[in-house]
Design a protein around this nucleic acid. Sequence first.
DNA 1: TTTT
DNA 2: TTTT
Lengths: 154, 154, 154, 154
Amino acid sequence: MRGVNKVILIGNLGRDPDVQFLEGNIAVAKFSLATTETFKDRAGKLISQTEWHTVVLWRGLAELAQKYLHKGSLVYIEGRLRTRSWEDKEGNKKFATEVVGDNLVMLDKRMDVNNGDHPAAHHHSGGQGSGSHGEGYTGVEIPPMSEPADDLPF
Amino acid sequence: MRGVNKVILIGNLGRDPDVQFLEGNIAVAKFSLATTETFKDRAGKLISQTEWHTVVLWRGLAELAQKYLHKGSLVYIEGRLRTRSWEDKEGNKKFATEVVGDNLVMLDKRMDVNNGDHPAAHHHSGGQGSGSHGEGYTGVEIPPMSEPADDLPF
Amino acid sequence: MRGVNKVILIGNLGRDPDVQFLEGNIAVAKFSLATTETFKDRAGKLISQTEWHTVVLWRGLAELAQKYLHKGSLVYIEGRLRTRSWEDKEGNKKFATEVVGDNLVMLDKRMDVNNGDHPAAHHHSGGQGSGSHGEGYTGVEIPPMSEPADDLPF
Amino acid sequence: MRGVNKVILIGNLGRDPDVQFLEGNIAVAKFSLATTETFKDRAGKLISQTEWHTVVLWRGLAELAQKYLHKGSLVYIEGRLRTRSWEDKEGNKKFATEVVGDNLVMLDKRMDVNNGDHPAAHHHSGGQGSGSHGEGYTGVEIPPMSEPADDLPF
DNA sequence: TTTT
DNA sequence: TTTT
């Protein structure tokens, strides 16, 4: 049975993204994202709850992250959960659950992806990772298929 | 500013999908979907509320709908809202809001998209629309990009 | 069969919210929200598509909208679709699909709901509707139930 | 800044839920959920990817799970991510990310929550946990607030 | 117009 | 560990 595995987050980066380039010049970005929800408990007291997520972005999205995101950036992330497991050097089984993003919207004022020549990034910590990756950024969001014009026969 | 326009529905088709083929043999499917939510009102009485949505699917998803969906089918639809407007013959302005689906999961038992040679469709009302569209179905869900193997350097 | 009817929007208000107070001093806010999505079409051209939604908020959320939202505000709205129909004076059947919000997050910088004594609303167009509703706003988000502490026996 | 932390899953239970009752007769259910997504990789090959999630439900939802869910059940879960950390007996830091559900829809045919006196559960493995909790289940989904009738002044 |  |  096919299923659904979807995560939607809005929150702030805890640090600048860590971006690396794999073979083939494939960018991978990783960062921590804090989502804070506020609600009232049963006694009516306002409770503020912060949860930290590990977000992983690939390719074009990773390059976007490198260019425009930094510590404190407010972003919308849509993605899916993935849990990886491995053994550390002591042989202990470890698990880590990450959100692999496949959509990213920057919510900071004056930070538009789509005309983003001079975004208001206060700083970006520059080239972790390596590689000339300015080979023409291609596409953030490629919908399954584009559609014919609106003149539907319905 | 980029935004988000996302709809998630689980419900039953009110009728068999209406499928048409546009120039270029592009399939478009349209159907009504009922979502029923049940909750308690303030007095604690169980309220059941049914909402009807118009769902539009394109291309591969439309062909899937034609092959596997029928009146009563239970589906998960992910898509976006689109409102169209026009004038009818009397010159009245008309609006219609539709959900343009870009992901579809069939939730009826024994109806799997992915090995779907002989789905347990109780019936499908056959060829509305027209056209030889059996030219090899290609892809329901194409994630933005596939990823390299799991050996990440993090 | 129970279903799901969920909408998630991020966009900007096209005008100040229209807020009214029904009997019992129940607030209802209504506004248009523009969501703009940008993607590449098949030819690789960047397409920017704006969709307008009618958002309706009730009670506490409506009061929040009145206090803090204005034309241009960037918000996250989570809600459900509802289509209403009626006949206009000429007897024409009319339909309108709205998003009834049950969660609201303000995304403009310096507009935090949770310490919101002096939000950076540049203006709010003041008291349409009526009623003394400044009795201390209480609660935006009431999760189904609060939970006991974290010392779970798992 | 308030944020958003939302997860949406559709998948099958790997085992019967483990249900426990805390002080105050508060039910907590826990189970593994498999979500399987199928897509084509770059080479066009169909890839099927299964991800396992730990789902935690509280109170009414936990009681629902105990009564109606079992190994293999297909469910829709809406909730939020929560990562817990602790040290095991050897002093190793451990992390576990869970999905705390606040909405549940059962998708198996003939398993309706809302008239659920004799659901078609093929089996349920009975009373793990303890406690007399058959005191009449009340309420699955309590929307923030119910609304007045539809006669809106708009 | 669906579904339980 | 599920499901098709």
